[in-house]
């Protein structure tokens, strides 16, 4: 507990230092990419939606137990991109994808890669909280139950563990069997995260998870990410550069379906290599 507090303190300091863009980089804090595990490796992704060429030759490495933020103006392809990682695009007609996405060395875009397995490993949280119109309990066990788990004791355990991890347990433990739609927006979103965690994923995809929430609820969820980072690999799409700077380790900047620049968040925000990145992060971009 104390250790966590310290971590938080450290993190806060880091965040503060990051936001002062000219501050020279502390070497101890800088993370050496080569020592980390690559969790997901996307190579030469081209994605067509109808006649729209939505992703153009996208290459990106996503590191294990890190938070990777995807930023860029709306319509730049960042949301489209995370939907390729768990193959959600398959539910939209008229899409075409080329390239490879390796998750733990296996190409998930290969036709024989089972999409159920993929989505169990790669969870997703959406822009607007989308709890099912069922009870809180039912929401959390929805995934495990559909995947064949029937034991009541085990399900109870999963509910408690998932809600605790999503930092929601204390708020809802006395009303697990009431409707999820009675929760506040921020609670609903944390429930959606718990629902994801219940199927034991390794990667969490977040599509602008706080854009529909107020600042206090947003802060809670951002804190949650720091805790989840220990166990999960997180990819977050955000329209807020401040959020990316606050919470992420790595950042990729998307523009018109291409990745213009990617790398350590600190580097990208302090010394962008591309002038377009600089324009965007300094707000000169429309």
């Amino acid at each position: 507990m104390i250790e966590q507090e310290e971590n938080k303190q450290q993190k806060n300091d880091r965040i503060k230092s990051r936001l002062i863009l000219n501050k020279p980089k502390n070497n101890e804090e800088s993370i050496n990419t080569s020592k980390e595990n690559i969790k997901i490796e996307c190579k030469d992704i081209d994605f067509h939606y109808g006649t729209n060429h939505a992703l153009k030759n996208v290459n990106l490495q996503i590191m294990e137990n890190r938070i990777t933020a995807l930023i860029g103006p709306s319509g730049c392809g960042k949301s489209t991109f995370i939907r390729t990682i768990n193959r959600m695009y398959e539910h939209v007609v008229d899409t075409k994808i080329e390239g490879t996405i390796h998750l733990d060395k296996e190409n998930v875009l290969a036709p024989d890669y089972d999409v159920t397995e993929l989505r169990k490993k790669v969870g997703m949280v959406f822009q607007k909280p989308n709890p099912f119109p069922k009870s809180i309990y039912e929401n959390v066990i929805y995934g495990p139950r559909k995947h064949g788990l029937k034991n009541k004791g085990q399900l109870d355990l999963i509910v408690e563990r998932s809600l605790k991890k999503a930092a929601l347990w204390d708020e809802v433990k006395d009303r697990l069997h009431t409707s999820a739609l009675g929760l506040s927006g921020g609670q609903q979103q944390r429930l959606c995260i718990a629902r994801c965690l219940a199927v034991d994923p390794e990667v969490l995809l977040m599509d602008e998870p706080t854009s529909a929430l107020d600042p206090i609820a947003t802060l809670k969820i951002e804190d949650l990410f720091q805790a989840l980072r220990e166990e999960y690999t997180i990819v977050i799409v955000t329209h807020s550069m401040q959020q990316a700077a606050r919470i992420s380790d790595n950042t990729a900047f998307f523009l018109n379906g291409e990745i213009i620049e990617s790398g350590l968040t600190d580097d990208l925000f302090t010394k962008p290599k591309d002038s377009r990145t600089e324009d965007y992060i300094t707000g000169r971009f429309s």
Binding site: H91, V115, T116, R119, F126, P133, Y142, K146, H147
Partner: peptide, 26 residues
């Protein structure tokens, strides 16, 4: 609402299970 369906699909739940679990009840 399609977010509900997506929420179910994103958990790796199959189409028919999503129909039974989310679509038909709604």
């Amino acid at each position: 609402p399609s977010p509900l369906k997506e929420g179910s699909y994103a958990l790796g739940v199959s189409k028919w299970q999503t129909i039974v679990g989310v679509i038909v009840p709604y």
